[in-house]
Design a binder for these strands. Structure first.
Length: 472
RNA sequence: GCCCCCAUCGUCUAGCGGCCUAGGACACUGGCCUUUCAAGCCAGAAGCAGGGGUUCGAAUCCCCUUGGGGGCGCCA
């Protein structure tokens, strides 16, 4: 049974990088009918917040990445929040201490920081060893800890040997002896560190495959050493390369929208976000780029995940979002559009009318957010004063008059009215239509004019013509 | 300073020794369609970082250089 997990720390919104990692894990699990676990890594008490945890879950749900086990739904290997598993980490850390694979450190964090800087200033790698810590463990210091009720941190004694890792994505990676020093397992506040909690949980939660970001590759050697210390076979581990900003640097806020939350707010569809993210570092065996979640699940394989870092291209996401807006059910999109319309304080005649308005501007939309700019004139009369020659002016006024006098008109009927006026007054059709467009929409480009007139109605059309010409 | 990863059009990628005259997608340019802008369709321009090997044959394998990224925390 394949068991994978996505283990974010609730210290911010779900970033596209995290979303892509979650997606790959999800696709991998579903492809093999396995289990996808959501684990919250909230061991950094200073930065972890419950609202971020909620937001993380909301974002995942929005993307339709569903977990089978997690803090909210539970599961056989819970709890799934690390802050609720502290006794477990303690127990496992003590076990390593008993076996002399880990040891207590009686140095204060500031002292360790000082040690680190000393090493760095001597151009030595900032690696700690047990010997370096020994000088702090004086009888006086130990008593001080006891009196103050401080727990010593527990450090892992890194074995001095070369460790070979066979990465699911990168292939064989060799960590030569001495590339890392001893490191903390448990902090003096009792909280486990990432590398330790991660291994204990993956072990206990029976995780079979780990797919995570490239930035964790250097951690792997530490984690493999911990697995070995416990005498446990590690899961298969694969590292996906990072998502970079357009400048080739790690994607961050200064590159614009980077969180799933922002993309949702800006009118992106989850189908587009997920589809785009899947293509960032993975490609299906056929060349098909537009895929549903089901298709991605079917086609996904870790072998086809690329090794190179990918630059996030907002342009392609936008294109893909436009594509999904056009391919989705009209009713579905209109429902999503209503909040945008209401936030502008606009009212609409009926949903059917709104659907038709949407259909008018659909081909120009890339995001839902763009709807209000594209379709504003359907809701509000534009402020325009038309500067036009006398012939066109007269033609437009004639149109207005004829529209008002006419009964209900079909599309063909409307077209005929315009054609007759153009013909009768020998107007330049292009100039006439452009003036009409300006009068009705206030813009020089936009939807098919007949559709605009149809949706506006005869009366409103006539009124806008007169208003633009400063008549009546 | 040390360790690790990566390297095909501007961008995402296909390619896993001969099917490559390097394929697709976004973006770009031109055309068609069209009263406008789009959408759609068609066409085009654009790339194997550089240098050494291995081989009958290299984008594909090896080495070096260069470039980019990540890490070396009582952060994750």
């Amino acid at each position: 049974m394949v068991r994978v997990r996505f283990a974010p720390s609730p210290t911010g919104f779900l970033h596209v990088g995290g979303a892509r990692t979650a997606l790959f894990n999800y696709l991998f699990a579903r492809h093999f009918n396995g289990i996808f676990v959501l684990r919250i890594e909230d061991t950094d008490i200073a930065r972890s917040e419950r609202i971020f945890e909620k937001n993380l879950m909301d974002s995942l749900r929005w993307l339709k990445i569903q977990w089978d086990e997690g803090p909210d739904v539970g599961g056989p290997y819970g709890p799934y929040r690390q802050s609720e598993r502290l006794h477990i980490y303690r127990e496992y850390a003590e076990k390593l201490v008993r076996e002399n694979k880990a040891y207590r450190v009686y140095a204060y964090p500031e002292e360790i920081e000082q040690l680190r800087e000393e090493l760095l200033s001597k151009n030595l790698p900032p690696h700690y060893t047990r010997e370096m810590f020994d000088r702090f463990a004086t009888k006086v210091r130990i008593r001080e800890y006891e009196e103050k009720g401080i727990q010593p941190a527990i450090y892992f004694s890194m074995p001095r040997k070369t460790i070979v890792h066979n990465d699911l994505i990168k292939g064989q990676v060799v960590f030569t002896e001495g590339s890392v020093g001893d490191f903390a397992l448990l902090r003096s506040n009792g909280m486990p560190t990432y590398n330790f909690a991660c291994v204990v949980d993956d072990m206990l939660m029976k995780i079979t495959h780990v797919i995570r970001g490239d930035d964790h590759l250097p951690n792997t050697v530490k984690q493999l050493a911990i697995y070995e210390a416990f005498g446990v076979e590690p899961p298969q581990i694969g590292h996906v390369s990072m998502i970079l900003g357009p400048d080739g640097k790690k994607l961050s806020k200064r590159h614009g929208a980077t969180s799933v939350e922002e993309f949702r707010a800006r009118g992106y569809l989850p189908e587009a976000v997920v589809n785009y993210l899947a293509l960032l570092g993975w490609s299906p065996p056929d060349a098909q780029e537009i895929m549903s979640m089901e298709e991605m699940i079917e086609k996904f394989s870790i072998e086809r995940v690329s090794k190179n870092p990918a630059i996030f291209d907002p342009g392609k996401l936008k294109w893909m979002n436009g594509h999904y807006i056009r391919k989705s059910q009209v009713k579905t999109i209109v429902e999503l559009l209503i909040p945008y319309v209401e936030s502008k304080g606009w009212s609409y005649k009926s949903k059917e009318w709104l659907e038709n308005v949407f259909l008018c501007v659909r081909d120009r939309m890339h995001t839902l957010e763009e709807f209000t700019d594209l379709a504003d004139f359907f809701f509000v009369r534009p402020e325009v004063t038309l500067q036009t020659d006398e012939a066109i002016r007269r033609g437009l006024l004639e149109c207005a008059a004829r529209l008002e006098q006419a009964g209900e008109l079909t599309k063909e009927g409307l077209v005929n009215v315009f054609r007759e006026v153009i013909k009768g007054s020998k107007l330049n059709a292009k100039d006439f239509y452009m003036s009409l467009r300006r009068a009705l929409t206030g813009k020089s480009e936009g939807p098919e004019l007949i559709d605009v007139v149809t949706l506006l109605g005869r009366v409103e059309t006539a009124a806008r013509i007169r208003k633009a010409l400063g008549v009546g």
